[in-house]
Design a protein around this nucleic acid. Structure first.
Lengths: 313, 313
DNA sequence: CCTATTTATTCTCGTATTGAGCATAAGAAG
DNA sequence: CTTCTTATGCTCAATACGAGAATAAATAGG
């Protein structure tokens, strides 16, 4: 009766440096992997503590903000478990201030190198209409059961055909690309055929299911930015408003209106001026601001907001 | 090395009938329990399918909307595992249209009977200021390490001391009450002492950690109502706007302004009139409306909204 | 038939927030 | 001292929100 079950603990650890979102990776069988390790059923008091332990061990980093993301347990998409064993992955989202340098073996990589279609900071990436949509469209055509179901999913996920781009639907997009055979990690006939015919699979692949975890994490992070003051976990204790904005933009993957962003965080009571100035701006000096913790008292959902949302929600 | 690990699948299944939110329960060791069963590591292809199987078996109900909630794995708060085994619970939130009657053994119960402080539809429940706050305050006083930390948590969670009530913080409140010894399921000295001295623990207890799962589920549901059209999983295909509003109010636990609610869902494109009328209203007949699926195309976050939120987000 | 009651539905109004952009300030570079 | 760059302040129209008045269409009772 008892097949062996193992619990893997995975962390998608984000930092933002140089205006780019980074994700901490290890090298695992030739592909980048998220830091992970098995739960010690006797030792680890909580899942989160187990995770922190693994990250400490593998990257010599002490995690700050940590939040549980999702538990992956599909039998068909798990690691090649040797026997009949079953592996579950409990995935976490973690944030680290700046990019502290990790131990050798671990390194920070540009998060968008794995999900290049998610970066809209310089407009809609050409990749989407040039590669993704055409190939997804042909995938949608071929097995159309209930008319247009796949087509509708593609439109909603990628903001084509009249739908609007929703930066939070990172996982929807990844899953669609996975099903459509555009993700190298899916070892389906479709992917093999495509690569034989010389087509590239967009974005760098990761080990196992880790890119899916990354997509889940990025989607959650983007969503949560809007209603919890998470950005402040990623910036130094004092920062200029432009720095703050760049961090939000890096994660959200879209450009923001500078003056309005300032108005939002200042009037929203999220930050307070420190009186000090940052002189290395390349222009007029900028005031340094700090997070106002009291805001947690005052407003139920103190996020930084993103444009394009139908307000009130 | 290998201690046995078991994965429990739990479901918090909501329905709304007669303007009351209901939760599906079984009876387990004298206390109400959420439907649950162990994952079959060989049989179940996915966690969700395993869960659906258990609910089918135990309650003879076919789940509609299902979403993964959280994975609980604290060693100290798990079931009394006989040996050194470790149990994880993967909890799900599920919604069921109306209340289909379950098999014997399962029954629908008022969700607020377990979390009575969460129902603000007729104003702030007296229980909060009469019982919860005083007892939490004394708990906060007694072990105040960093000054006011506990006090601050209580204020934010319960909307006392200047903070506003945030209906989403269901889990925060539950955890606070748990730590403060007001939750019967916590088998701490504090709880025992309180019950010896005749104090009641507010709300009906559930088996194991199930009330915590319920709190997690309700919090998530309240949050998600605002930006995804979840309510429509809980109402019949056609409904009057007041019916819809009552369902939202039941779950959110707060009263809504009728005219504004109507404006929100109508102008928001969430519903469309069917032309048919409901005559049994007790007053003027009401038009029957239906969910407009197209809205998924048009707006990224088509929720029903709740008042009091700092807009944008 | 007339009236009170109940619920539905339509509008209005004052206020706050949003999205967009113009204008000014204060540094550095030449 | 002109130009470039970034910071910061301010305006303006469009929209959304919160609250509530006003009107419509049923039912129940006399």
């Amino acid at each position: 009766m008892s097949a062996e079950i193992t619990i893997g603990l995975n962390a998608a650890i984000f930092a933002v440096t140089g205006e780019e979102p980074r994700i901490l990776t290890l090298e695992e069988g030739g592909r980048p992997a998220l830091p992970f390790g098995p739960l010690d059923p006797r030792g680890d008091h909580t899942l989160e503590l187990g995770l922190r332990g693994w990250v400490r061990e593998q990257a010599e980093l002490e995690l700050g903000y940590v939040e549980q993301l999702y538990t992956f347990g599909d039998r068909d998409r798990q690691a090649d478990t040797d026997g009949g064993g079953r592996a579950l992955s409990v995935a976490y989202l973690a944030l680290l201030r700046e990019d502290k340098s990790p131990a050798r073996g671990a390194e920070w990589r540009d998060a968008y190198s794995f999900l290049p279609w998610e970066d809209w900071r310089s407009g809609r990436p050409g990749l989407i209409d040039r590669v993704l949509i055409p190939r997804l469209a042909s995938w949608a055509r071929e097995e159309e059961g209930p008319s247009g179901l796949r087509t509708e999913r593609v439109e909603i996920a990628f903001g084509s055909g009249g739908a609007k781009w929703d930066e939070e639907r990172v996982l929807d997009r990844y899953e669609l690309l996975y099903e459509g055979g555009l993700i190298a990690e899916a070892r389906t006939e479709r992917v093999k055929k495509a690569s034989r015919s010389g087509r590239t699979q967009p974005g760098l692949p990761m080990a196992l299911d880790h890119r899916r975890i990354l997509a889940t994490a990025l989607g959650r992070l983007r969503g949560k930015l809007k209603y919890r003051p998470l950005v402040f976990e990623l910036v130094p204790p004092s920062f200029t408003l432009l720095q703050l904005q760049r961090v939000v933009e890096a994660l959200a993957g879209i450009p923001l209106h500078k003056q309005n962003f300032r108005r939002l965080v200042e009037n929203g009571g999220l930050v307070e001026g420190t009186g000090k100035l940052e002189m290395q701006t390349g222009g007029r000096p900028a005031e340094l601001f700090a997070f106002r913790r009291e805001v947690l008292h005052e407003r139920p959902t103190p996020g930084v907001g993103l444009p394009g949302l139908p307000p009130r929600s």
